[in-house]
């Protein structure tokens, strides 16, 4: 079976700074991939390249059989690769429902700005999609709340709900639990993961919390200094010595305990 996402020899340099180098991975459909690594290890750079926010300096990105290297982000979104953001990117002046309507309306039709001037924003289908997404992500009690007033966790859920409005095949989540209290993290991830799995989305998520990685990922990619230093099932990848020394810090803690 062709992998749904295939990245080969990906490299990104900013002047003399190498943000990513020689990243080569294949992701089969419906896998849930956790991406770990210290700050500046290249995780977000990787996400930005796959979603078209950054153009790779070298290498190729294939979505199924299609080469999407260097394509514009909105074209990549239209093909079926969507993303959420570390800081939720939503429309603060609008309500949750209005946010979802905008997302569903944009996602529904083929791009064609003139046609969009004649399609009502709140067609029956758009409203139905918006309602379904609000229910799927369990944010119904905030339906009429203006987004600027929402708690962090709800903003994150809305951001992800909007990202999947177009029924993407792949979703990249950049730190879905950042800014969320420890008590709320698992609840949030349960909602997100079951929603995404019900839509059979292939998931790549960036995460710092190893417990969350262990619970939700089928596979772990460990980034260090712009490159992947471990790739495998969570138990295996998290047991990797370099991962423990350089990323999760378990090694250091153990050594400190021995000392």
């Amino acid at each position: 079976m062709t992998p749904i996402l295939s990245v080969a020899g990906l490299e990104k340099t900013f002047g003399s700074v190498v943000a990513a180098r020689d990243i080569t991975i294949d992701v089969p459909a419906e896998q849930t991939v956790g991406i770990i690594g210290a700050n500046g290890a290249g995780k977000t750079t990787f996400v930005n390249m796959v979603t078209g926010h950054l153009r790779p300096s070298k290498g190729t990105i294939r979505f199924g059989d299609k080469d999407i290297t260097g394509m514009a982000s909105r074209d990549i979104t239209r093909l079926g690769i969507s993303r959420s953001f570390q800081v939720a990117q939503i429309f603060p002046s609008l309500t949750v429902f209005e946010n979802m309507c905008v997302a569903a309306a944009i996602a529904r039709d083929a791009d064609g700005i003139l046609r969009r001037a004649f399609t009502p924003l709140r067609s029956g289908q758009t409203v139905a999609e918006a309602e379904a997404a609000i229910e799927l992500f369990q944010i119904g009690s905030y339906r009429e709340a203006r987004v600027a007033t929402l708690p962090q966790g709800i903003r994150k859920l809305l951001d992800i709900a909007m990202a999947v409005a177009g029924w993407p095949r792949i979703l990249l989540l950049d730190e879905p639990t950042s800014g969320i209290s420890i008590e709320e993290k698992f609840g949030l991830m349960d909602v997100v993961m079951s929603a995404l799995k019900s839509r059979r989305v292939t998931i790549l998520f960036v995460e710092h919390d190893m417990e969350i990685i262990g619970r939700y990922a089928d596979r772990v990619l460990a980034f260090y200094d712009g490159t992947i230093i471990a790739d495998g099932p969570p138990a295996e990848a998290l047991a990797n010595e370099r991962v423990q020394t350089l990323i999760s810090g378990t090694k250091l803690r153990t050594e400190a305990a021995h000392a």
């Binding site: 944009i106 791009d111 001037a117």
Partner: peptide, 28 residues
């Protein structure tokens, strides 16, 4: 009035609010 209720017309405040989200939803 019709335009303001259309997809292109209603997406005005969202442009002011957050262009990044609109682009990543797939609209230029």
């Amino acid at each position: 009035g019709v335009y303001f209720r259309s997809v292109a017309g209603a997406i005005a405040v969202p442009v002011r609010d957050n262009e990044i989200r609109i682009e990543f939803l797939g609209l230029s």
